[in-house]
């Protein structure tokens, strides 16, 4: 019925607006991390689409590319968890320490990726 569809779409719009305003409340550095994660995920998706189109020919390169994106995203998410002040679990961990871990892991990740890229 037209009324329920408009109401559902209105509900969806309200939901979306509520989420968006809630999200705007997050601190900027977390937003940066989120943006970074999105960037990585998006790149990974693009690669999967490409693979679907042309096949898995240099499979190692594909894996390497996708893994680099996914690994980056995962490490960024871990950093976000550790850096987020509202996260009670990591209250005692200095954010710089988290960042140092992040940098180290990323360097290792990129070494591995470069090796596997072929």
């Amino acid at each position: 019925m037209a009324r329920s569809s408009t109401s559902t779409s209105k509900d969806a719009q309200d939901l979306f607006r509520a989420l968006w305003s809630a999200y705007s409340a997050t601190p900027t550095n977390l937003k940066i991390i989120d943006l970074y994660v999105l960037f990585a995920i998006f790149t990974a998706l693009l690669q999967v689409v490409y693979m679907a189109l042309v096949g898995t020919f240099p499979f190692n390169s594909f894996l390497s590319g996708v893994l680099s994106c996914v690994g980056t995203a995962v490490l960024a998410v871990c950093l976000r968890i550790q850096v987020n002040k509202e996260n009670k679990e990591f209250k005692d961990l200095a954010p710089e320490r988290a960042f140092a871990d992040f940098v180290l892991c990323n360097l290792v990740l990129h070494l591995v990726i470069m090796n596997f890229l072929g």
Binding site: T28, K31, I32, L35, F39, T43, L46, Q47, Y50
Partner: peptide, 21 residues
């Protein structure tokens, strides 16, 4: 697709600027 892949990076940079870093 190489070009396309570079787009998210540019989008990241643009997003960063939009966030006012």
């Amino acid at each position: 697709f190489l070009g396309l892949i570079l787009l998210p990076f540019i989008g990241f940079l643009v997003g960063l600027l939009r966030l006012g870093v």
